[in-house]
Design a protein around this nucleic acid. Sequence first.
DNA 1: GTTGATGCAAACGATTTGCAACTGC
DNA 2: GCAGTTGCAAATCGTTTGCATCAAC
Lengths: 150, 150
Amino acid sequence: MIDRKEVRSLFKSKGVPLTHQRLAVYEELQARHDHPSAEDLYEKLRGDYPSLSLATVYKTLQTLHAMGLVSRVDSPASQARYDAVTAVHHHAVCDACGKIEDVFDPRLDDLPAPKASGFKPRAHSVHFHGLCAACAEGRRSNAARRSHHG
Amino acid sequence: MIDRKEVRSLFKSKGVPLTHQRLAVYEELQARHDHPSAEDLYEKLRGDYPSLSLATVYKTLQTLHAMGLVSRVDSPASQARYDAVTAVHHHAVCDACGKIEDVFDPRLDDLPAPKASGFKPRAHSVHFHGLCAACAEGRRSNAARRSHHG
DNA sequence: GTTGATGCAAACGATTTGCAACTGC
DNA sequence: GCAGTTGCAAATCGTTTGCATCAAC
């Protein structure tokens, strides 16, 4: 748990201005564990910050994510990607070019089920994130694929 | 590998009309392993089917997915969900209500890395899919959250 | 011949962007 | 005071939908 003082000094150390909105979004996110969306946070924080805009929440989440203070659940890919392989398998996603490779490894197919809270698992999948061979070598041959957000 | 004859009889057995477009999308998807998006498929198939529309590709992918012939990579969630927990952890996603629960289990944190193709893994996460306690019991207390697509 | 799929264009929801006003440092 | 952020509204992107036409069975 990172307290307000630490947050303040982390922002300072990175030279990023700490605004009320940024602190509010971060503290709200710290206070709950239901993985809210940008919209959820906006609706909640509107009460305390009537002038807050949804665009600011989005920008703030990007900032916090870039600083490593928050994580995004699921893939940041905005487009659904399809696969004719329906057998159990997993994926390796290149963070640089967005390429998705299939990973077949029976050791990944049988993982301990989540114990908590009565969840009834039906399936699972493992996503590796890292660099594909091409990007790791520095030849950015696939880089064109990804329309880098920023 | 499912050949054209099997595809035809599978459609017939389910009473789903097999159109040229559906066969084309499915065979294109079978032929490649780069996990194309709907748009990718559309651009590729335009050459052979100049009258093909993007909407048809989307509808066809839904149909194929419903029949279990293709799988979607990543989560079908359309909204990004955030989390102030940046430590290594995993997620259990309820297919009925969309609720996301954190899963902490050190046995999931150290999985065999993908061996193939020179991929350099940096991190990974496991997504369990199934039913949360509430939905498994039939009380759909959280169902409102999910604006069921269909 | 019927039923359901296609193609088109408009609608939609999530996210981003341009720009003027404002605020943290 | 200045650089960088905010708020607004419009733009953008992926995806869905309504409806008339057309193809599969």
